[in-house]
Simulated scan of single mutants.
Amino acid sequence: MNILRLVAALAFTASLTACATTDDPAKGGFFSGVKNLSSGGYEQRVNDRQKTLENEQDTNTQQTRSLERANAQSADVKAERDAAEARYAGFRKELDGMRSRLAAAEKANTKKKTEVAALNKQIDALQAKTNMVQQDSFTPDAEKQKRLETLRREREALDREVDMLIRR
C-alpha cells in the first residue's frame, strides 16, 4: 500500500504540476515552480530574457554608431559651410578692394581730366600767340625771333608738363 500511496501522491503532484499556467516565479505557486524547474521553463525564460537583452544592446550599439556618423557628417557639413563662408568673405573683400581702386582711379582720372583741360587751354593760348607772331607783319624780324624763342621755351615747358601727366 505504500507503493499505492506513493503512486497516488506522484499522480496528484503530476496533475497539479500540469495545471501551472505561468513561468513567472513571482506569480506562480509551489506547484508552478516545481513544474518550471522540472520542465526547464525558468531556464527558457532566462534564455529569452538574455536574448532580448542582447538584441536591445545590439540595437543600442547600432543607434550609437548611427549617431556618431550623423555627428561626423554634421561636423563635415559645418566645416564645409565655414569654408564656403570664408571664401565668400574673401570674395567680398576682394570686390570691395576693386571698388576702392576703381574709385581712386576715377578720382585720379577726374584730376587728370582737369589737368588735361588746363594744358589744352595753355596749348591753345601758345598756338594763338604763335599765330599772332607769325601773322605780325609790322614787327621787325629780330623782335619776332625773340618772341618765337620765348614761345619755344614755353612750348618745351608745356611739353614737359604733358609728359609728366602721361607718366602718372
Rank of each mutant, 00 (worst) to 15 (best):
A128W: 08
S38K: 03
V133Y: 00
K112G: 09
K111W: 11
K35H: 05
P140R: 03
N109I: 02
L126S: 09
L158E: 00
E149G: 09
A89I: 05
Q57C: 01
R167H: 04
L95I: 11
R99S: 07
S39F: 02
R92A: 15
R69H: 13
A83M: 10
D48E: 05
L95K: 09
D24F: 01
S32I: 06
A70K: 15
D96N: 14
D159R: 06
R81D: 09
K146N: 14
R87L: 15
E54I: 10
L10A: 10
T114H: 12
D96G: 08
T17W: 01
P140T: 00
F31C: 03
I3G: 01
Q122R: 15
Q127S: 13
L151P: 02
R81L: 13
R92D: 12
A8L: 11
A103S: 12
L165S: 05
L119R: 13
K113Y: 06
A86S: 11
C19V: 03
T110D: 12
A125I: 08
V116C: 09
G40T: 10
V46N: 06
L102G: 03
F12W: 04
F30D: 08
K107I: 00
K146M: 12
L102W: 04
M1K: 06
Q63A: 04
L10S: 09
R92C: 11
L53H: 13
A26V: 06
Q134N: 08
T130H: 03
N60P: 02
S39E: 01
G97N: 09
L6H: 13
E149T: 10
R101K: 12
L10N: 13
Y42C: 05
D58N: 07
I123F: 10
L16Q: 08
G97E: 10
D96P: 00
T150V: 14
T150K: 13
K144Y: 03
K27T: 13
T110C: 08
R87H: 11
L4H: 06
T114S: 13
A14V: 03
S32Y: 05
K129R: 10
G28I: 14
L126N: 14
V133N: 00
E94F: 08
